Structures are given as C-alpha cells and as structure tokens.
Amino acid sequence: MPDTSSVITVPPLPSLAAQAERLIELGVHELAGIPADEMRTFAEDAGSRDGDALLAVHPDHAPASALAPLLRRDGKPGFVVTDMPDVDRFTPCTVELPGASLYLVTGLDRGDHMANWSPEEALPALTKDDRTPLLLTEGIHWVLQQPAVLERNRCFMTIGSRLRKPNGALDARTPAIWISNGTGRDGRERRNAPKVGWCWWGNRHTWLGFASATGRRVQ
C-alpha cells in the first residue's frame, strides 16, 4: 500500500471571513437558523488564529440533502444519487463533533495517496496517523468553498459519516463526493455535475481518495 505519511497539496481555502460570506450568499445561514451576523462574528473571531481552516455548520443544522444542491460545477447543481434517500441518516461515526452550530475543521487533506484503498483499509490507517475522516457535510462544505478541490479522477470519500441500522450494525455503504458521468439514473443532463453517492465498505476505487483532517474545534 502507499505511504500514508505523504500529504497531497490541494488549492487553499479562502479566509474564514470570505467563507462566512460565501455561506451567507448561498443561504446556508437561513437553512441552519443562524443569524448572518453571528456567522460573520464567529469567522472574524477565529480568523486571526487559524490559517487554512474550513468553516463548517453542524450537520444537525445543515444536513447533506440540503447542502448538496448548492454545489456547482460547469454551471450544474450538485445532487444526491436516487438510491440514497436516507443520506441524512449517515451521521458521525468514530468522530466527535464540537457541541456548537459552527466549528472549524483543520488540516484538510483530500487523501489522494489512498486512492484505490477500500474504506475498510483506510480508516485504521488514518487513525494510526492521528487523522480524522471527514463527515459528508464537511466534504460538501469544502467543495462549496473551494470547488477546485473536486477534480476528475481526484475525488474523495467521507467515511466519518456512517448509517447505523436498527440492530446496531453499520450499513455497508460509505458516502463519497465525485463528478457525475451523466450515465444511468444520473441522467445525461447531469454530466459533470457534483455528485453525492456511496460505495461499499470493502470496495476500492481508483478515483476516490479519503478526505481527512487533523481536528475540529470552536473558538
């Protein structure tokens, strides 16, 4: 397997102030029930202490199903695959979130070096490297703020989000964000659109890395 110590360089994020304005422009603050001024203040207070950090809204306030359509690529909106109607039931697993509506995600890595690994192989490797897998909502936030992070053949999984069945077992699907080819049920009109989908826990895909971070925190 590849060396997991390598870090792939991806386009930097805008400032936290600019990220806050982006979310407000998209209406995420209204979706989440957070006043625009509160979002601006959070970003302003944190801006002097964090460099390349991602401003995220807690998934309880802004679920993946509401965020995905805000994505854009080639002028086309993002979407969730039709066979994932339960997308918002994919909740944090092995991930501890700050107890706040707004928080920061630090040390982002797209995980290109783990392309063609299975989620089953990737999770323990990330844990060993003291990294935490991104949630699906965090991955969407990342692409909202920096669309260039989603490239053909360089997309990513967000295995911090899992669905737990009524019997306590984890669903074998694991969420990911990639670019639609416009085939099958996606529809030709969605070719090149950002796509929220899923892959099996034990399967490998050459175009999917594993997005992760060094941590999460509030001010």
Rank of each mutant, 00 (worst) to 15 (best):
E44T: 15
L31M: 14
R110E: 02
L134G: 09
H141C: 09
K76A: 04
N153A: 07
N116A: 12
A43Y: 00
T91N: 05
N192R: 10
A100T: 13
T82L: 08
T91P: 02
G182C: 13
A43Q: 07
D186K: 12
T91I: 01
E189D: 14
R73C: 04
A100G: 04
Y103H: 13
W198G: 01
L136Y: 00
E44L: 14
R131G: 01
K195V: 09
A32P: 09
I8C: 07
A172D: 15
L104N: 05
R152Y: 10
L55N: 06
T9L: 15
L102A: 10
L170T: 10
L208N: 01
P59I: 01
R164T: 08
A46W: 07
K195P: 11
N192L: 11
M39T: 13
D74C: 04
D109S: 14
V81W: 01
G182Q: 09
G27I: 03
G187D: 04
H141E: 04
L54C: 12
L31H: 14
D186P: 13
A32F: 03
A17D: 15
H61K: 10
L104E: 02
M39D: 08
P133S: 04
P133A: 09
V149I: 11
D129A: 15
P63L: 03
G111S: 05
